[in-house]
Design a protein around this nucleic acid. Structure first.
Lengths: 144, 144
DNA sequence: CTAGGTCCTCTAGCGACTAGAGCTTCAAGG
DNA sequence: CCTTGAAGCTCTAGTCGCTAGAGGACCTAG
């Protein structure tokens, strides 16, 4: 049985975060020692490892909750888990495209900076003027 | 003079967001009509356009605040603005690399999904098992 | 003059934590 | 056995960048 600190060290999840996960019901309520301190067995460690890993991959906690409830019933088809992963992949795709556009624009801004006065500076100029900008639409700002 | 609603329509920034920007001091306090409603001139519109644009590019509000304070003094050198843009670019680079690794892993998970039972499912399996995973370190999770 | 759309202020909520106050418990050393 | 200090506990509030809603005031078109 591990204390919360040892569990934290073992999984790389910070102590307050573990308590937070318990609070929102992502982890079951931990057993307690005589002195009311949390104790964790290997199952809890595994579950927390799963959560940690999924968070690393950018899954939101709600998706992880779903994934966990799925993995609690090993006899159902995995299409649902597949779907969740695909949704996550699509979100990641979108984020990458967006960031790449952004990167291009920042590079352009920096290259064009006259290194003179602010009034000549592209960094300020581009941001203040939609004409000088790569994305000139201003309808969608979707950021999953 | 535009009402807040017209300004919102003109810039694509939502009404409560405009009030929020005023509240945190990113926009100056607006003039008011006889009936206490906000009125905006072209300067405010320009400033809000700048903010909107910088937000689109992923600048945090604090960086925008800095940029704005820079552009309020057009006689100083633009090295500071340049620095901010470069800092942003570095952060964007890092985000992209991270997301690309993530994308690779998600694709691997999905491709390998056995389309069978949850118990065989890669999505669950990979998440529960560090051995099956590309990133096997678990120290940093830095996400800007 | 009325209807309803827009505006006002204020407060609370989102996700996913993080930080701090003020207390208790535990493990190691003397 | 006693002390010390690290680690644990609960609770609340803060972070970022908004967003939503309540409950009212105002403004404009018909």
């Amino acid at each position: 049985m591990l204390s919360i600190g040892k569990l934290s060290a073992a999984t790389g999840v910070k102590v307050p975060t573990i308590r937070y996960y318990e609070q929102i019901g992502l982890l079951p309520e931990a057993e307690r020692s005589a002195g009311n301190q949390r104790l964790y067995g290997p199952k809890a460690q595994e579950r927390l490892g799963f959560i940690r890993h999924a968070r690393d991959l950018g899954f939101p906690l709600e998706a992880i909750r779903e994934l966990l409830s799925l993995s609690d019933r090993p006899d159902i088809p995995c299409a649902a888990a597949d779907q969740i992963a695909k949704r996550q992949l699509a979100a990641v795709h979108a984020r990458i495209s967006r960031l790449q556009a952004l990167q291009a624009e920042l590079e352009r801004m920096i290259v064009q900076c006259a290194h003179g006065r602010i009034s000549d500076c592209r960094v300020i100029g581009v941001l203040g003027n939609h004409q000088l900008c790569l994305h000139d639409d201003h309808g969608e700002a979707g950021q999953g």
